[in-house]
């Protein structure tokens, strides 16, 4: 008995915070696989969804994933990220569904706002249409609670109504690790397995697991221009004013989203270890530093989530 106890303590004392977070995330993924008919995992090629893919490997190998992956493609992605996405999916041998915002536009499901190059808001309709078309009842997202204050209040299992809406006032209590996966017809569940991870945890995990990430996360030389106190990369879909002059800078991206609203940060961090050092010293949140879409108002994330956003 004494030996058993000592060993158990040894096992526990060897567990790091990353081990504890990983064990929790694996548990959540398996719960979803067991309790839903048709889950799907949102994979954007960004660092958080890269971690989710690794968690899925931990949860289900040596079998295949009991769900496909899905990318909501705005058509305004960084080419490096799309290359990475396709390579990673091929390596894993899993199935990828691409839901295209361009198709939603072509079909007249959504209209681009004149003068607003961002397709960020349009993604919601494309996502909801794809959920309905494929009959998905659970959707894994890589959102983290440390990202944003509305997300800090969202459950791991987050119920969406027929319109994909989040109702923050009637969230189900979530106790212990007992997740309630029951839904009614038309509803679906958004599930966030890495809710309790921070930006730092994600990078430390990427280092520990030696995970590949798209090259734009690392420092590189790029032509950028200044808009709304952010460094944006020029592209065909982002018209530039005359006064917005291009400058050549050494930058990297802290988040990966639409090219039209994701800003680069000035950085020389060329590898994971240097990024971890940079994150440790950062004084601005990742979304604050890099996302034009969150700067609109104090509740813009809550508003978009209510409409069915990720």
């Amino acid at each position: 008995m004494t030996i058993a106890l000592t060993n158990a303590r040894d096992i526990q004392s060897r567990m790091s915070h990353l081990d504890a977070l990983e064990a929790e995330s694996v548990f959540i993924m398996r719960e979803v696989a067991a309790e839903f008919q048709s889950p799907v995992l949102l994979f954007s090629g960004g660092k958080d969804s890269i971690v989710m893919l690794r968690i899925a490997e931990k949860a289900f190998r040596p079998a295949r994933f009991p769900f496909p992956l899905m990318h909501v493609d705005t058509g305004h992605n960084f080419p490096e990220v799309i290359d990475f996405r396709d390579r990673r999916v091929a390596e894993l041998g899993e199935r990828l569904v691409v839901a295209s915002v361009q198709e939603s536009i072509d079909k007249g499901r959504v209209r681009e706002e004149p003068g607003n190059p961002s397709r960020n808001r349009l993604q919601t309709t494309t996502l909801l249409d794809a959920i309905q078309e494929h009959g998905f009842d659970a959707v894994f997202g890589g959102a983290r609670r440390d990202e944003e204050k509305a997300r800090a209040k969202e459950r791991v299992f987050s119920l969406r109504d027929e319109f994909g809406q989040w109702d923050p006032k009637s969230q189900r209590p979530e106790l212990w690790s007992l997740y309630n996966g029951r839904i009614r017809r038309g509803q679906h569940m958004r599930v966030f397995p890495i809710s309790n991870w921070t930006e730092m945890d994600v990078w430390q995990y990427i280092e520990r697991e030696a995970l590949e990430v798209p090259s734009i996360y690392y420092a590189h030389e790029r032509e950028v221009f200044r808009r709304d106190s952010m460094w944006l990369a020029p592209s065909d879909f982002l018209p530039r004013g005359e006064e917005e002059r291009l400058e050549r800078m050494v930058v990297r991206y802290r988040t990966v989203g639409d090219m039209t609203c994701t800003g680069a940060v000035s950085s020389t961090a060329a590898n994971v270890v240097e990024i971890i050092a940079e994150v440790a010293a950062a004084r601005i949140t990742e979304r604050g530093a890099t996302r034009a879409d969150d700067a609109f108002s104090e509740t813009s994330m809550e508003d978009r989530k209510r409409e069915g956003y990720f």
């Binding site: 440390d146 944003e148 800090a152 209040k153 921070t198 809550e302």
Partner: peptide
């Protein structure tokens, strides 16, 4: 973090901080 909380100046729900 929620609109209702900010408007009413009260905490309604559990928030997780790191």
């Amino acid at each position: 973090g929620l609109r209702a909380e900010r408007e009413q100046g009260i905490t309604i729900d559990v928030a997780y901080r790191y």
